[in-house]
Nucleic acid binder design. Structure first.
Lengths: 149, 149
DNA sequence: GTTTTTTACATAGCACGCTATATTAACAAG
DNA sequence: CTTGTTAATATAGCGTGCTATGTAAAAAAC
């Protein structure tokens, strides 16, 4: 009858996410980079000049969260924000040379942390794990969508 | 070569954890309860009168994190803190009647959120998922331990 | 063409995680 | 018994997430 935390997907997910974040943070902190900034850079490395709106859609965070992350990233010299040429409300985020320079080191750090986390899993188990996570994410997103009506 | 976020266990974990936290938050907010407070109550429902040190060990959070959570929980009337009878440095956290009263509603909310998240998984897949998460958590904890030396 | 609504962004305020540091009590050494 | 160290808690400061609200530009309605 007692709620067993070790049987709760949410509890385990929370714990796992904190361990991931701590490990990543430790690895990228020497670069002067923070986890959410790294996550945002992943998108900009893939496509530069995105607007705040585009970024928050791709990363699935709230608008205010992205606004704050972008402000810190501009402060720390990872991006510059310039007004959008066709839309007076929007701003585009552009990578600085410093941000392009740190790409390899940062993705290596993330790869290393993933490697540590998955050490005890076989290749097949790793694939299963990613698949299950994607399906769980999808289920919650769908449900959120339903809730919105 | 490009870092693929949908292939990164850490990225997916972070996303999944945010969805879990948002869902749980929405469900327990009517009770006046926040996620970390719920997590802490899980321990105290199981064993009342724990010290801050015992709680942070069981929940694997930093001491300062637990100190702040306990302060908010006392402020919100979930616990009272009294000096430990045998150790002048320590305090014990004791549940209020209000905290005992909310137990069923809160665990039901957590169960419901887990249910939504796992809708698309079979019983066997759910078991596999929990098992994989436990092993990933374990791997990162072991590695952290090694790092500490 | 003016008015209304929607959209993009900013800001305030809070929870919760972290590191780093201070404080005080307990314990160990001498 | 005094001194030095360890252990339990508190506090400051910050990043990242959230909700709620404000503002200005764009788009839609009329």
């Amino acid at each position: 009858m007692t709620f067993q935390k070790s049987e709760s997907a949410g509890y385990l997910t929370n714990h796992m996410a904190r361990l991931f974040a701590n490990g990543l943070q430790r690895r990228i902190q020497p670069l002067g980079l923070a986890p959410a900034q790294f996550m945002t850079l992943l998108e900009l490395w893939d496509e530069d000049g995105l607007t705040q709106k585009q970024l928050l859609e791709r990363l699935d965070v709230e608008q205010a969260t992205m606004a704050n992350t972008l402000r810190r990233m501009e402060r720390d010299g990872w991006i510059v924000r310039r007004p959008h040429p066709d839309d007076g409300r929007a701003h585009q985020a552009w990578l600085t040379p410093k941000a392009r320079a740190v790409r390899d080191a940062a993705t290596d750090a993330a790869d290393a942390q993933n490697g540590v986390a998955l050490t005890d899993l076989s290749d097949e188990e790793r694939a299963t794990f990613l698949d299950l996570m994607r399906r769980v994410i999808h289920a919650m997103q769908v449900w959120e969508g339903k809730e919105a009506r």
